[in-house]
Simulated scan of single mutants.
Amino acid sequence: MIAHLFGTISERETDAVVLDVAGVGYRVYMPKRVLDTLAVDAMQKLYTVHHVREDAMTLYGFMERTDRELFLRLQTVTGIGPRLALQMMSHMATGDIVHAMIHEQTKALTAVPGVGAKVAGRIVLELKDKVNDLQDGAERAQMRNDRVTTDPSQAGVYAELSAALAALGYAEREIERVLLQHIHAWEALPLQDALKAALRVLSERGVR
């Protein structure tokens, strides 16, 4: 099972990226709403699901662990496979899907192509009491996205710094805290300079 990948985006396709990891290119299918924010040549860490069938092996990738977990839970509902789960996450943010489930808003779910009233009803019935733990992670991710993507140029800088710091072993929550506070000051710096600045701040905070 491939749990995550860290590398450079070498290609961006209609529904996937090719992530170069130590010279090996992995095609990773992603929600389109996230895919459109990624830049070729950027470093990126993706949380992955390795889906194996008799006739194919497919990788699905997500920016956040919470997104990956929602993708997996959606597929526990009768009639939902990886393609429809990805379709839902291409049209709705994780937090919006979770909110719709908890509050039994089937109409919001049927706005996704391929999700009819019966499927939406099953999603709510089977998952409304099983996704409360995803709320906090979805809210943190949305808060990060709202702050970063107010200026589209920051999204790539944030992703590259986050991936580089994660590869160095720093905890996801500590990375998020530092980058949200300082990304405005670092966005114009070359990546190596921004990374040095981030490491300096982490060191000053006693984070190892």
Rank of each mutant, 00 (worst) to 15 (best):
residue 3 A to R: 13
residue 8 T to E: 15
residue 8 T to R: 07
residue 9 I to M: 07
residue 15 D to V: 00
residue 19 L to C: 12
residue 20 D to A: 10
residue 22 A to C: 07
residue 23 G to M: 09
residue 26 Y to G: 11
residue 26 Y to L: 07
residue 26 Y to K: 03
residue 27 R to Y: 01
residue 29 Y to S: 13
residue 30 M to I: 09
residue 31 P to K: 04
residue 31 P to M: 06
residue 31 P to W: 04
residue 32 K to Y: 02
residue 32 K to G: 08
residue 34 V to A: 14
residue 37 T to V: 11
residue 38 L to D: 06
residue 38 L to M: 11
residue 40 V to N: 13
residue 41 D to P: 02
residue 44 Q to C: 11
residue 45 K to N: 11
residue 46 L to F: 06
residue 46 L to M: 08
residue 48 T to V: 15
residue 50 H to L: 06
residue 52 V to E: 15
residue 55 D to F: 00
residue 59 L to C: 04
residue 60 Y to M: 04
residue 62 F to Y: 11
residue 66 T to N: 15
residue 67 D to K: 01
residue 71 F to N: 03
residue 76 T to A: 14
residue 77 V to G: 14
residue 80 I to L: 08
residue 86 L to A: 10
residue 88 M to E: 11
residue 94 T to A: 08
residue 98 V to R: 03
residue 99 H to D: 15
residue 102 I to M: 13
residue 106 T to E: 15
residue 106 T to D: 14
residue 108 A to Y: 01
residue 109 L to T: 10
residue 110 T to P: 05
residue 111 A to R: 11
residue 119 V to R: 07
residue 125 L to W: 02
residue 127 L to R: 08
residue 128 K to I: 02
residue 129 D to P: 00
residue 130 K to H: 13
residue 133 D to F: 05
residue 134 L to Y: 01
residue 138 A to H: 10
residue 145 N to G: 14
residue 146 D to Y: 00
residue 147 R to V: 05
residue 149 T to R: 09
residue 151 D to I: 09
residue 154 Q to G: 03
residue 162 S to C: 03
residue 166 A to G: 08
residue 167 A to C: 06
residue 171 A to E: 13
residue 172 E to T: 15
residue 175 I to A: 10
residue 175 I to M: 10
residue 176 E to Q: 10
residue 176 E to L: 05
residue 177 R to H: 11
residue 177 R to L: 14
residue 181 Q to V: 11
residue 187 E to N: 09
residue 192 Q to I: 09
residue 192 Q to Y: 00
residue 196 K to T: 09
residue 199 L to I: 05
residue 200 R to P: 04
residue 207 V to R: 09
residue 208 R to Q: 12
